[in-house]
Simulated scan of single mutants.
Amino acid sequence: MTNLLEAKGLSKAFPARDGKGVVNAVNDVSLTLAEGETLGIVGESGCGKSTLARMLLRLIEPSAGEVFFRGQNLLGLNRAEMRQRRRDIQIVFQDPYASLDPRMKIADIIAEPLDIHAIGSRAERVERVKDLLSLVGLDPSAGARYPHEFSGGQRQRIGIARAIALEPTLLVLDEPVSALDVSIQSQILNLLDDLKSRLNLSYIFISHDLSVVEHVSDRVAVMYLGRIVEQGPADVILTQPRHPYTQALISAVPEIEPERRKARTVLQGDLPSPENIPPGCAFHPRCPIAADICKVQLPAFRSGGRSGVRCHLVEDPSIL
């Protein structure tokens, strides 16, 4: 498959609040996304997933690294060129309440991208908005109402309609169902799956919920404190995890069937602050199998077979 998107060595450091240090939100992240593929990015809150998503769209400028979309370096584009490219890359935000302007009618919210890019006549835009509302499972009459008149699930459908208005190739989905009731989550996931096949979309799906990522992803990248620690096909990562952090995440996923339940790996302590990342492997203070080398040396990302992992002990099990 042809790579639609490629990120090389992306990093982002923000100034610390006290002005004396930096917050290393994302560190040396490289990934690829093929045409028609869904890449799931998973990790605990605060691991840098959303910052990475915004860098891929240049909503945040990276401190280092490159982003290529269909072979074109997005970081080399000027403002006007990037504005045109954004027709191909859109985002669906986590909070369906905060992402919609409460003062605008739904039809105006969905039509705004069409207005900005001067697509079609006014009458054509009105019809396009009606078609988009129908496409995401809402009645076209919803366009005359305001966001506060809709439930969270309906608002997320509106956010999706706005995101696909320009007929993009890639959608970045930043925790699109985490703010919704479980009963509504499956409806939105099914909608996204249907739109992917109907509109030939590619997805980057960001979540802290491995069970959701398993449902939608072709490949999975696991992040911890700003770095990808394991990456590969979803069926490999979720059934044969190699990194201790991935193993702990998977062990926490509830299983309905008793025979499929695994022994729970409980991590000790909380996620460290990105202002004070531990030396060596950042996971070593919480790792149940950490060795001395893990405390002083950052492991390289090693690829083997269909997946890759950043762990000393996977590279050389004899260290144990």
Rank of each mutant, 00 (worst) to 15 (best):
I60D: 14
C311M: 02
N3T: 13
L75M: 12
P147I: 04
D88H: 15
A16E: 02
I91Q: 10
P274E: 04
F150R: 02
Q154P: 03
H312Y: 02
L52K: 10
I119A: 06
H284Q: 05
S207V: 03
L132N: 02
A7E: 06
S217W: 00
I250M: 11
N27P: 01
A248N: 05
S30D: 10
D316W: 02
I91C: 08
R286Y: 04
P176K: 03
G48I: 08
P278Y: 06
L138G: 02
M223P: 06
N73S: 15
A111M: 07
G226T: 10
Y245A: 01
P96R: 04
L138V: 06
S197N: 14
N190L: 07
G137Y: 04
R103I: 10
K12R: 15
E61S: 14
P241D: 00
L199C: 13
L210M: 14
A300P: 00
V23N: 11
G19H: 08
M82E: 11
I319P: 00
A64Q: 15
D209G: 09
S50Q: 08
I184A: 03
S45Q: 11
S11G: 11
P279V: 07
G226W: 02
A234L: 03
R122K: 15
F150V: 01
E66K: 15
P140L: 09
A118L: 12
P272K: 04
A118V: 10
V266S: 06
K196C: 12
L173V: 08
T169V: 12
V229N: 01
P140A: 09
L238W: 00
D139T: 04
L100Q: 02
P62A: 13
R260M: 12
Q187P: 07
D95G: 04
V129I: 05
I277F: 09
R261C: 09
Q72R: 15
H215W: 09
P278N: 05
E167W: 05
R260I: 11
R227W: 00
P241H: 00
G137I: 06
K20N: 13
Q154H: 04
F69D: 08
Q240L: 06
E6W: 09
A291R: 14
Y97E: 05
E149L: 10
Q185V: 08
K49R: 11
L191N: 04
A25T: 11
S99W: 08
D218V: 01
H284R: 07
E149A: 15
A64K: 14
E257F: 14
E214R: 15
S141G: 03
A142G: 03
D18K: 05
S141I: 11
S251T: 08
E275C: 11
V23A: 13
I228T: 06
C287A: 01
I289P: 00
G36A: 08
